[in-house]
């Protein structure tokens, strides 16, 4: 049994990851069918900057700097004082702000179930389907070796 904070962080980590992979337009599309988001105040951003992506030498050794990735971040505050954060790869300011507001709203136990059902889960399903399609196309290019019998 994990402690409640670890569990809360794991849930939050999951929705933040899903929102980071969705475009602003995709999130907005899902919000149309969701309960209205609460009013928010911007604490920071949305602003675009860079994160240095690191690799590991040999794939599993000490880290090295591979190159930077553009990232947009946003932090917001709801009227009830809940704070939401978003860091999303790319330069989609709308995505970052929506993700931050959703992060704050999702921390509210009263709002969480409806927002998970209307926004997060459909996006997760869509993303999983997209990944599954890539995996299926990759699987079709997997070589099926067969051994030739030597003919004399």
């Amino acid at each position: 049994m994990q402690d409640p904070e670890t569990e809360r962080n794991a849930a939050r980590r999951r929705w933040m990851g899903i929102l980071a992979r969705a475009s602003g337009a995709e999130i907005a599309g899902r919000l149309a069918a969701a309960p209205a988001l609460p009013a928010h105040r911007r604490l920071r951003g949305p602003e675009t900057g860079l994160v240095m992506a690191r690799g590991r030498q040999g794939g599993d050794g000490a880290p090295f700097n591979l190159g930077e990735v553009t990232v947009t971040r946003c932090s917001v505050c709801l009227e009830d004082g809940r704070i939401g954060h978003a860091y999303v790869a790319g330069r989609d300011a709308r995505q970052a702000e929506l993700a931050a507001v959703l992060d704050a709203a999702l921390q509210d136990p009263a709002r969480q179930p409806a927002l998970l059902a209307a926004v997060v889960e459909p996006l997760a399903t869509f993303q999983a389907a997209r990944a599954a399609k890539d995996a299926a196309r990759a699987a079709a290019t997997r070589v099926q070796f067969f051994t030739m019998a030597t003919m004399r």
Partner: peptide
Amino acid sequence: YRTTLPRFGASLPLDTGAMRIRR
């Protein structure tokens, strides 16, 4: 262009072992 952007930090090292493989 990148010189005009602030650096927010560094990533955790990428886990290429967990890659969603296309090739």
